[in-house]
Amino acid sequence: MRKFFTLMAALVLTLGMVGISDARQPKQRDSVAGTFDYYLLTLSWSPTFCLMHPENEQCTGKGYGFVLHGLWPQYAKGGWPESCPPLTQLNAQERAKGLTLFPTAKLMNHEWSKHGTCSGLGAMGYLDAADKALARVQIPEALQPSTTVRYFEASQIAQQFRQSNPGVAENGIAILCSGPELSEVRVCLTKDLEFGACGKGVKNQCRAGQIRIPPIR
């Protein structure tokens, strides 16, 4: 009988600890296509990417400056949906459209699967939105592809984008670095692809002082 009560006590304690553990786990929001607050247009500075991935096909002397990394649905309170069902593959027409926007097929397929499926627009609708978003944001003259190294502070890069894109708010753009070098520029857009405010967690990620802008390959 003593063994029985001992086992029962251990079982109750174990279940209680599981309940406590489960209660401490943050609840994950289900990813539902079309359920998000705004877009994050992410432009990658290709020369920096190619310093770390020289074998990538976008790094074979094509002279890219900024390239489309992705158009990402975001939540205003932070985080984002991803890989929203139903997951579908791009058809031939959609792939052809995507390759006019993304530097590689691998990146295109990844971005559609992880982020595009959550737009609620379908594949061609998402690619059209990415096309319009790219056209919406003008690259500053000082940040066009160049064969020479340049140096700017992150605040200067953001200011150049604001000057080239009237309407970009103070909290509507973020500059990211990889070590001492420019990595990405992220611009926040409404679901109608107008300039808008960034949500929680979207912020500059560069060191203080000047950062290096590598030349094109």
Rank of each mutant, 00 (worst) to 15 (best):
residue 193 L to F: 12
residue 182 L to V: 05
residue 111 E to M: 06
residue 20 I to Q: 08
residue 61 G to E: 01
residue 117 T to V: 08
residue 70 G to C: 05
residue 126 Y to H: 14
residue 134 L to N: 01
residue 123 A to R: 04
residue 129 A to F: 11
residue 128 D to A: 15
residue 94 E to Y: 14
residue 115 H to C: 13
residue 190 T to R: 05
residue 86 P to Q: 09
residue 184 E to W: 07
residue 201 G to P: 14
residue 166 P to R: 06
residue 113 S to E: 13
residue 84 C to V: 10
residue 102 F to L: 07
residue 186 R to S: 10
residue 102 F to W: 12
residue 206 C to M: 11
residue 138 Q to C: 09
residue 119 S to C: 12
residue 36 F to D: 05
residue 27 K to G: 07
residue 97 K to T: 08
residue 29 R to C: 03
residue 115 H to N: 11
residue 28 Q to Y: 09
residue 181 E to F: 14
residue 182 L to Q: 02
residue 89 Q to S: 11
residue 110 H to E: 13
residue 25 Q to V: 14
residue 140 P to F: 11
residue 18 V to E: 11
residue 146 S to L: 13
residue 109 N to T: 03
residue 160 Q to P: 01
residue 194 E to M: 15
residue 114 K to C: 09
residue 98 G to T: 02
residue 208 A to Y: 14
residue 102 F to Y: 14
residue 54 P to N: 02
residue 20 I to W: 15
residue 33 A to Y: 04
residue 133 A to H: 10
residue 185 V to N: 03
residue 84 C to M: 08
residue 74 Q to W: 08
residue 32 V to K: 11
residue 47 P to Q: 00
residue 32 V to N: 01
residue 203 K to W: 10
residue 122 G to E: 10
residue 91 N to I: 08
residue 164 S to I: 01
residue 55 E to Q: 07
residue 191 K to H: 09
residue 143 L to E: 08
residue 48 T to F: 10
residue 150 R to Y: 04
residue 26 P to Y: 06
residue 61 G to V: 04
residue 30 D to S: 11
residue 76 A to H: 09
residue 194 E to F: 14
residue 168 V to T: 06
residue 111 E to W: 06
residue 16 G to Y: 06
residue 66 F to H: 00
residue 137 V to R: 04
residue 79 G to T: 05
residue 172 G to I: 06
residue 43 L to V: 00
residue 80 W to L: 08
residue 22 D to P: 00
residue 92 A to Q: 14
residue 140 P to A: 08
residue 70 G to Q: 03
residue 212 R to G: 10
residue 17 M to L: 13
